[in-house]
Design a binder for these strands. Structure first.
Length: 424
RNA sequence: GUGGAUGUAGUUCAAUGGCAGAGCACCGGAUUGUGGUUCCGGUUGUUGUGGGUUCGAGUCCCAUCAUCCACCCCA
């Protein structure tokens, strides 16, 4: 084989597209019910946009960026996520938003990260995101979290758990980091090598260590949730209360951190435990500083993003059968070359009536063409040969019922239409 | 980025260093223009790619590409 899709990329084949349409339709439906508008932003942006919004020290920017220079020497990068572009768009166009009516936006499309591929982890992958911009009210945090939750429920993804946390505002999270580092460095030598490295890069990660002795040590460490300032604590209470009112089940998990620097206050993840190391379907949080940081007006915002492949993989794993689409309804079978003209006209009439139809290979036998109908769930076959041309009566076969009737040429379409719409 | 496993027909998988095979799927046939079963027949192919060892490599060695698993991290 001469060419193959580049590492970490893949083709969505015709037999698989229904899976994508299935989940995309649910996203469209739910976002529209909540009055969110779709937007489309570029697939590449200035490199600096991601460096500044996602954060210089994050894995995404440090080692996973598809950065390149264009012919004019501009530093660009394929987007590793969607929120940075959304925030840029809002700041750039000074899109109007207010407490009373925040901007409600959603997007879907490919994202790119240079990481080692695995099942459920690709270099080009698809995400959708939902963003609510302009309100700091905890009810919109809950709204965003609920939309993601409902999409997963509606899609029938099994055994999802929703974990929420608050990472505080810059002030209280800063204070907390100092507190936690003090605690960790006190017994630095007692931790495993990984944890000692984590202490410098991302101290919160020490909480995830599987090593028993580390777990013991960290048990008494100060918790972010205990260090929230009054405003952040109040906000977090508000989010929890609102989720309860919405009857969205959640766990408070102080270890939810998120790998992007722009999050403030609310952080959350939708998790599953049956896709190996890929246990996050998506997540999100509040980013109250980002839009201003990118040169816009001071604008609070909250959003989520989810990976489409992981949703599809978990559905496949659960044995879900995706709705069929694009099923052929009619096969027109010309018998002999004389019937070609009439068959083409038949096809055109069927199409005008919104009935899917194709013309059969006339060099193949009638029997084989009917066999094709059986195998491919085609509802009707229309046979047109010398006899039919002479009499003006076409043979219409109901494949599933194995029934056959002779119908006047002019009435074939309405006959079939009647059956397909379930009238008879 | 680190460590490991794997790669043969469209697909699922066989083949001790000695002629590349089976099921499913696909295509054709079983007396002229009529059916999912059955029967018969056919193609499934540069054994991921490139080198090397050998009289001889799908098999052994090296490189490379890709997939998968665990880290890391996340979607």
């Amino acid at each position: 084989m001469k060419y193959q899709a580049p590492r970490g990329t893949y083709d969505i084949l015709p037999e698989d597209i229904k899976k994508w349409h299935y989940i995309e339709n649910i996203i469209r439906k739910l976002t529209s019910l909540y009055n969110y508008f779709e937007v489309r932003v570029p697939i590449f942006e200035q490199l600096e946009l991601f460096q500044r919004s996602v954060g210089e020290d994050t894995d995404i920017v440090e080692k996973e960026m598809y950065a390149f220079k264009d012919k004019k020497g501009r530093e660009l990068a394929l987007r590793p996520e969607g929120t940075a572009s959304i925030a840029r768009m809002v700041a750039e166009h000074n899109l109007k938003s207010s407490k009373k009516k925040p901007l409600r936006l959603w997007y879907e499309g490919p994202m790119f990260r240079y990481s080692r591929p695995q099942k459920g982890r690709y270099r080009q992958f698809y995400q959708f995101g939902v963003e609510c911009i302009g309100s700091s009210n905890p009810i919109v945090d809950a709204e965003i979290i609920a939309i993601g939750w409902q999409i997963l429920q509606e899609a029938k993804v099994p055994d999802v758990s929703l974990e929420i946390n608050s990472v505080g505002c810059p002030e209280c999270s800063n204070d907390y980091n100092i507190l936690l580092k003090e605690f960790l460095y006190k017994d630095k030598d007692k931790y495993c090598a990984d944890c000692q490295r984590r202490m410098d890069q991302n101290p919160l990660r020490v909480f995830d260590c599987k090593n028993n002795s580390c777990r013991q040590l960290i048990k008494n460490a100060p918790r972010m949730l205990d260090s929230l300032c009054e405003e952040c604590a109040l906000h977090f209470e508000g989010v929890k209360n609102n989720l309860e009112m919405m009857k969205v089940p959640f766990n408070v998990n102080p270890e939810i951190v998120r790998g992007l620097d722009y999050y403030t206050k609310t952080a959350f993840e939708y998790k599953i435990n049956y896709l190996g190391a890929q246990d996050a379907l998506g997540g999100g949080g509040r980013y109250d500083e980002l839009i201003e940081y990118l040169g816009g007006k001071q604008t609070p915002a909250v959003g989520l993003s989810m990976g489409l492949e992981r949703i599809i993989l978990s559905l496949e794993k659960s044995g879900f059968s995706f709705p069929e689409e694009n099923i052929l309804e009619v096969l027109v079978i010309p018998i002999g070359t004389c019937a070609l003209q009439a068959s083409i006209e038949m096809i055109q009439e069927l199409h005008k009536a919104d009935i899917s139809a194709i013309i059969a290979d006339e060099s193949s036998s009638v029997g084989n063409n009917l066999k094709f109908c059986d195998k491919n769930n085609v509802s009707f076959a229309v046979l047109i040969g010398d006899n039919e041309l002479k009499s003006g009566m076409y043979v219409v076969k109901d494949i599933k019922k194995k029934a056959q009737s002779e119908i006047k040429r002019e009435e074939v379409v309405s006959f079939i239409k009647k059956y397909l719409s379930g009238v008879v």
